[in-house]
Design a protein around this nucleic acid. Structure first.
Lengths: 197, 197
DNA sequence: AATTATAGTGAACGAAGGGTCACTTGTCAA
DNA sequence: TTGACAAGTGACCCTTCGTTCACTATAATT
């Protein structure tokens, strides 16, 4: 039960930090969203900063667990259609999963204030995806699915446009459908340019 | 002299908002950075929110003035080398101009809180560049410099990777040189794929 | 020269923030 | 049954924040 509340506090913190940022958040409000009174929070965390650090620990650990080891990488697709549908599954997850969306927003808001947030933001927004798709493209080149080229450059050129649209969805959720269509169109464009038919 | 201080307050606000965000900023500090005492600020703006609104007005007007009308668009380059050097000039400006960097940071930090910041962020980070390069690519296709294709899609695929690296520079300035090299490499890759030799 | 606006000061205020503490309540072990 | 402990409460403390105001100095206007 203690663990439970401690956990709920972290999730509430993720929620409110993602909306108002760390500085814009106050403990009373955070506690109230859990049906607690502010002093109750301090039975579980010693300060607002401690909540922030615990949340970041969690986000970092989650990222490592999820994308850190090679074994959790998606398999190399065995056709171009497979490749596109894998991308679209990932995109849909990352756009619609509340927790992932909030994580991105928090990292966006705190990237200039907190060094660890800064580093994790770069992984989330740039290097993580690029590295992942570098391996995928490398595999696809070996299989002759796409033209042989620098896989890292291709991954960069492939993931950053998609990433830009994911950010757009975070910022303006009402444009989500448009963004998804645009990602699909971009995939067709990409495959037309690099796919081997 | 009144105008002057009013102006200096805006510039100081841009500076401190870009570092600490709106909520994280306090008027005392802002005033002190101008050699003023906090009550002096209120001779020029009626509240902290008024400073924010004036700053946003300024950023919006500046953007309109700079990128809003077709006449301020860069000319269509007349060679591929010209095109790349134009891009690199723009990139260097946008990465090194303090005011532009701060503007991006402020928009990044306040995009979820303020509707106008949100809209301007989308222009800065996505649609503005895309529209601009749509025209450029359209012109370059007419001149036979690049393969005929959907210019809007090409602009999207060209500008978003560069944008991602600009964001990286904002977040981790020590990676600026790497980022610029990467943009140059991306340009070569892009031209190899779409340029007509 | 007298007046009046303007820019800036310093003290003060109320509200809101983070954090503490003595106390209550419920749970579980001895 | 009792004792210990973890979880939660409400009142309180101190600091910081945004804002106001009476006042001064300076520059412009009549």
């Amino acid at each position: 039960m203690a663990k439970d509340t401690k956990e709920r506090i972290l999730m509430a913190a993720l929620d409110v930090f993602s909306k108002k940022g760390y500085e814009g958040t106050n403990i009373r409000e955070l506690a109230a969203s859990l049906g607690l009174v502010k002093s109750g929070i301090y039975k579980h965390y010693e300060s607002k900063g401690a909540i922030w650090n615990a949340l970041l620990d969690r986000m970092i650990a989650y990222y490592e667990e999820r994308f850190g080891s090679a074994e959790h990488l998606p398999p190399v697709p065995d056709s171009l259609e497979d490749f596109v549908s894998m991308t679209m599954r990932m995109v849909n997850l990352t756009i619609h999963d509340e927790q992932i969306v909030k994580t991105r927003k928090v990292l966006t808001l705190e990237q200039y204030r907190d060094e660890r947030a800064r580093d994790l933001a770069t992984k989330h927004f740039l290097t993580g995806l690029t590295e992942m798709f570098t391996r995928i493209f490398s595999g696809m080149m070996d299989q002759g699915l796409i033209r042989r080229d620098d896989p890292a450059m291709l991954a960069f050129a492939y993931t950053t446009p998609i990433s830009a649209l994911i950010h757009l969805c975070d910022r303006e959720p009402e444009k989500t459908e448009d963004a998804i269509r645009k990602i699909e169109a971009f995939n067709r464009h990409f495959i037309a340019a690099y796919g081997v038919k």
